[in-house]
Amino acid sequence: MGEKVVQQIRRSTVLVAVLVLFWWLSTYNSLVERFYSGKLFPVFAIVGQSITAWIPFSLGDCLYLLGILVFLVFLITIVVNLFRKNYSTALVRALKALNMVFVLMVCFYLFWGMNYFRLPLEKRMGLQMEIGESCELLEVTALCIERANSFRKQLKETDLQISNEAIFLKAQNLIASNSTLQPYIFSYLPTIKSPITNLQVNYTGVAGYFNPFTQEAQVNTSMPIFSKPFTACHELGHQAGIGFEDEANLIGFILCTESKDLLFQYAAYYNAVFMLLNQLAFQDRDAYFNMLKLIDPAVLNDAKEEEAYWRRFDGVLTHASSKFYNEYLQLNNQPEGLKRYSRMTKLLIAWKRKIAADF
């Protein structure tokens, strides 16, 4: 066995040992909460956001593209060396590529990814998650429909013509100044950016995403405007150390409802309504159809517009992206996969319980 092969194997061993250490730590939520999310993650958040907040474009997108190109080069060189029967060189290249993957995994969990294993937000906020009666689901759904209808009627055409930059700025100011959430999140320089291009984002069916390597939150700026405020606040929740998707949804809801902006308030209840209805359709089909009758036609038209928008890009890439992300979530302490998003309905009901009349 060549010296270069042995050297790469040694590096692999060290990197795997570090990943095993992360895995061991992930089994102790209280340790993750106290030492990682409470002390180490804020350091990486401060450093990362201090660097990238002032860059006007998505640095993370550029790095992703560069990473894809690098791995393509490695793949080509491996295939070429195998074809030429340079097996030792091909093995070294393959081990280098594997080690690059291990390095990226270490960086992912070190910079942000361990937040997937912190104490659940429901415990930190003291939320009672036991929901024994369906009447609570009906009550919250009806309330959210009423609020969505009301805010939609108050929206003027000028409210729907607000720029992406203005939406981003309002969302950033909301999370920076929100006293309700400050004990549960770490917000330093909240920043939202547009993707370098929305085209690939549309075809993967993504409304927004967070880059854990560069601490950047991105929002798809070409989707219908009534979803942008909620998505922006959701991604800022991830940037602030919230890992679970349902928890980021709750963060987005709280931020939007505490805004004085009509579009933000509408976005909160609009998104909540259809998450709640999905849960209701699963539990009680008759109640689901009865609730649909309560929704204002303008709100339903917004939902149809959004559905039509995403349908334009539905295809092989969308389904492949969904499958990949579903498995990614399952690997990171969310066994429900993409269904984790809909768990926000339980958090929403528990949140209403806690704040009662202020909901």
Rank of each mutant, 00 (worst) to 15 (best):
S227V: 01
N333R: 11
A303I: 04
F108G: 04
Q239R: 00
L292W: 12
F282T: 05
V5I: 10
F117S: 15
R10A: 15
D61P: 09
M275W: 06
A45E: 08
E165G: 07
F210G: 09
T257I: 15
V14L: 15
G315N: 08
L40R: 05
E235H: 15
K39P: 01
N149R: 04
F168W: 01
L338C: 03
N290V: 02
Y309G: 07
L69E: 03
Y341N: 06
C256N: 01
H319I: 03
Y325I: 00
D296A: 05
K339G: 03
I9E: 15
N99T: 00
I131K: 10
T180W: 05
G113R: 06
H234V: 07
N115Q: 13
G243C: 00
I78A: 11
F22P: 14
L181F: 12
I167Q: 05
I295P: 09
H238M: 06
I78E: 15
L25T: 13
V6M: 05
V316S: 01
F253D: 00
N278P: 00
F41N: 07
L82H: 04
K85L: 03
A232G: 09
P297Y: 00
Q215D: 07
N211E: 13
I349M: 10
L277K: 00
L25H: 02
L255M: 08
P183L: 10
K228F: 01
A267L: 08
A308D: 10
Q330Y: 11
S88W: 12
L189T: 03
T27L: 01
T191V: 00
L21K: 03
F108A: 04
V101Q: 01
T77C: 04
N326D: 14
V80C: 10
M223P: 09
L174M: 12
R84N: 15
Q172V: 04
A166M: 04
E133I: 00
E305I: 11
A281W: 05
Q215N: 12
Q182P: 06
L331N: 13
G205K: 00
G126Y: 06
T158Q: 08
M114A: 13
L121V: 11
Y209V: 05
A148V: 06
G67K: 04
L91T: 09
T180V: 11
I175D: 02
H234L: 05
P195G: 07
M1Y: 10
L15S: 02
L110E: 12
L255I: 09
L255R: 08
Y209E: 07
Q49K: 04
Q49H: 10
L277D: 08
Q200L: 14
I51E: 06
I254D: 06
L189P: 02
V73Q: 07
L66S: 12
A267G: 15
N149Y: 02
S50G: 14
A142S: 14
S322L: 08
L255N: 05
W351S: 15
F186T: 14
V14P: 02
V79M: 13
L250V: 08
K293A: 08
W310C: 05
A267S: 15
